[in-house]
Design a protein around this nucleic acid. Structure first.
Length: 622
RNA sequence: CGGGGUGUAGCGCAGCUUGGUUAGCGCGCUUGACUGGGGGUCAAGAGGUCGCAGGUUCGAAUCCUGUCACCCCGACCA
């Protein structure tokens, strides 16, 4: 049945709510798709729900085709489950926790690894039942630090999450096979949703695991940074992106005598640069400074050094050091341990046997360096690696430290060796890629490609999880040899409402007049606009609507309101229905109506009898 | 959690500095007339605990204190 505009709720607005910054947020509000209830909480109005359902239908179709089976798991989850897997801490404040009447804590699930693993553990006993891929479409909760951009970063959102279980990585029924299937299904889903997307290598984050890809819609409003090689053979997000081989040289001759500079109240790179310019009349660029960050790993300290204009990447640091427990040290603790936070320099490691130095290649160079003096309110200039650290430190200290480090419980040599690193005992210092990649860096393919940075919206993410959850929750399955094994898992997520926002944010997703939907996820495919909903115009509208709805994949909205034509046209453009049929007296007298694509400049006159055929024809291209 | 800002009609805002009758404007809404193919015109209306609580004062939207909500910039996040 076609929908009558007057019978549904489409509260369009001429003015943009002040709080909306990005096009998708503004237009979804103005066009009456969503309504804000609180920070990061939205109602989905009839149009919004229809689009959401269309996306879900495509997802369900492709999940079925990929052999995944739908379940529905609870939003309310015992917080103990999260404690068992260690993710209560890992998620931290992002995890919504509510108390029930017995003041027991429950988590509002931001994802369902714990629950699905428990479920599978309850019923799957034999290798014969594997592989198994289950999925759901559920409301998820994240207590976002800062909800933003409307539906793009809300505290409550719809997610499709699939989980697969296997006993092996490769071979038939292995994780690789299902990962590939889901990966391919994602490509089809996003294509069918009309989204331009790119696939990038990603860090798996707090979910953990070994391999991971993100599906991104390129958009200047995206919150994620993607780096792509201009050779077209590598793409990754900024957390993951490796950097091609860079040379370094620690043995460079000093540029001058190490000299203290009084820099009162200048703890930051920018502060120091500004201070030099203002008070010393010297131009000091951030790339001539060394950023020295104090990290902690149990009872050892880790000094990470990157160039002043670069950013430390903790994930890389963890991999390079083979320790997952590395974090930036809280200021207070670092101060207690003798680090003058804000004024630390690499030579703080010289006389300490509890400090390991890890230096990014771009910081491991000769030349003029300014860095912290390890004294409050002081920096040094003419810092030199060879003179001020290597010679001063001596090899024995370093060897001892290295041994201490590698004997630490939790040290993962295999992981440490996968990172690009160089731990030559003669160099005394661990040199490794520990910073975020940026525009202009060499591609890790080392094929003389250069990385270029763009922004994107993450709409999908696939991971290989391994046995993290089955181990933590002790879920086992009997294999062919009657041995208990922890199955390995894959995990595959899609942000359903983000697809709507991304469809609008994409290049062709909107213009000055409103939304331009891909036909597959528009709330209606056809909008019929009789100039007046009376007499012959009304009859024609009703008949056409009935005819069109009988066709596959077509649903119709009739603008039956007693509004001026101009109002109807403006609203039509705003809500973005792909096809509009305008019925007016003059054309109808000739047995014709006007057919116009949302994207077309002008309407075509089409004979009534030919409308269905023309509609089908036009839709193919939308 | 830091820094900044805003709460006045459904939406967008003015009024607040320098307290003073019935708190305004635009859009939207209701009724009527004229109109009728890209947000029309005129007329008459409805609609407000001025975020909340306390204080100062003869008198508070306006000054003070507290509190809540929301937004923006930082925070390594689907």
């Amino acid at each position: 049945m076609p929908t009558l505009w007057s019978q549904t709720l489409i509260p369009t607005a001429r003015q943009v709510p002040a709080e909306a910054e990005v096009p998708s947020h503004q237009l979804l509000l103005r066009a009456g798709y969503i309504h804000k209830l609180g920070s990061g909480i939205y109602d989905y109005l009839p149009l919004g729900v229809r689009s959401l359902h269309k996306v879900m239908a495509i997802i369900r179709d492709e999940m079925a085709a990929a052999g995944a089976v739908e379940v529905f798991m609870p939003t309310l989850q015992p917080v103990e489950l999260w404690e068992q897997t260690g993710r209560r801490t890992a998620y931290g404040d992002n995890l919504f926790v509510v108390r029930d009447r017995h003041s027991r804590e429950q988590a509002l699930g931001p994802t369902h690894e714990e629950v699905i693993t428990t479920l599978v553990g309850a019923y799957v006993e034999s290798y014969k039942q594997l592989p198994l891929t289950l999925y759901q479409i559920q409301t998820k909760f994240r207590d976002e630090f800062r909800p933003r951009f409307g539906i793009l970063r809300s505290r409550e959102f719809q997610m499709k999450d699939a989980y697969s279980f296997h006993l092996a990585l490769d071979g038939p029924g292995g994780l690789d096979e299902t990962y590939r299937k889901q990966f391919d299904a994602y490509c089809r889903i996003f294509k069918r949703c009309g989204l331009p997307y790119e696939i990038v290598e990603a860090e798996s984050g707090p979910i953990g695991g070994s391999a991971s890809h993100e599906f991104m819609v390129p958009s200047p409003t995206g919150e994620d940074v993607i780096l792509k090689s201009d050779q077209g053979n590598y793409a990754a997000n900024v957390e993951k992106c490796e950097i091609g081989t860079r040379t370094y040289d620690l043995a460079f001759a000093p540029t001058g005598t190490l000299e203290d500079v009084h820099t009162p109240s200048c703890p930051g790179i920018d502060d120091v640069a500004a201070f030099f310019k203002k008070n010393l009349k010297t131009k000091l660029k951030p790339q001539n400074m060394l950023k020295t960050l104090v990290c902690r790993a149990g009872n050892l300290w880790l000094i990470a050094v990157v160039r002043g204009d670069h950013e430390l990447n903790l994930a890389k640091l963890r991999v390079v050091c083979g320790m997952h427990e590395i974090d930036l040290a809280p200021d207070a603790e670092a101060r207690d341990a003798g680090f003058t936070i804000g004024f630390v320099g690499p030579h703080v490691a010289v006389n300490r046997d509890d400090v390991l130095l890890v230096v990014d290649p771009d910081a491991a160079q000769g030349g003029f360096w300014v860095t912290g003096a390890n004294k409050i309110d002081h920096h040094v200039k003419h810092f030199n690696w060879q003179r001020d650290v290597i010679t001063a430190r001596g090899q024995r200290l370093v060897r001892k430290l290295k041994a201490a480090w590698e004997n630490k419980p939790g040290f993962d040599r295999a992981s440490a060796m996968t990172g690009q690193r160089d731990w030559d005992p003669d160099q005394e210092i661990l040199i490794a890629d520990i910073r975020n990649a940026g525009d202009g860096d060499p591609s890790p393919q080392n094929d003389s490609g250069t990385l270029r940075a763009t922004k994107g919206i993450e709409i999908g993410h696939v991971f290989k999880l391994g046995d993290k959850y089955t181990k933590a929750l002790d879920v086992t399955v009997l294999d062919e040899g009657n041995q208990r094994k922890h199955p390995i898992m894959g995990c595959y997520g899609i942000g359903v409402n983000r697809i709507l926002a991304a469809a609008i944010e994409r290049d062709a997703g909107h213009d000055d007049h409103g939304i331009i939907w891909p036909a597959s996820i528009a709330p209606y495919t056809v909008l019929i606009t009789p100039i007046k909903y009376e007499g012959a115009l009304r009859d024609t509208a009703d008949q056409l609507a009935a005819q069109l709805e009988a066709l596959p994949g077509i649903d119709v909205l009739i603008d039956d309101r007693d509004e001026r034509a101009g109002v109807k046209f403006k609203d039509a453009d705003l809500i973005g229905i792909p096809l509009r049929i305008t019925i007016g007296d003059k054309a109808l007298a000739n047995g014709q109506v006007e057919l116009k694509a949302r994207t077309a400049q002008k309407a075509d006159l089409v004979a009534l009898a030919d409308v269905p055929q023309h509609v089908m024809q036009l839709l193919k291209g939308l």
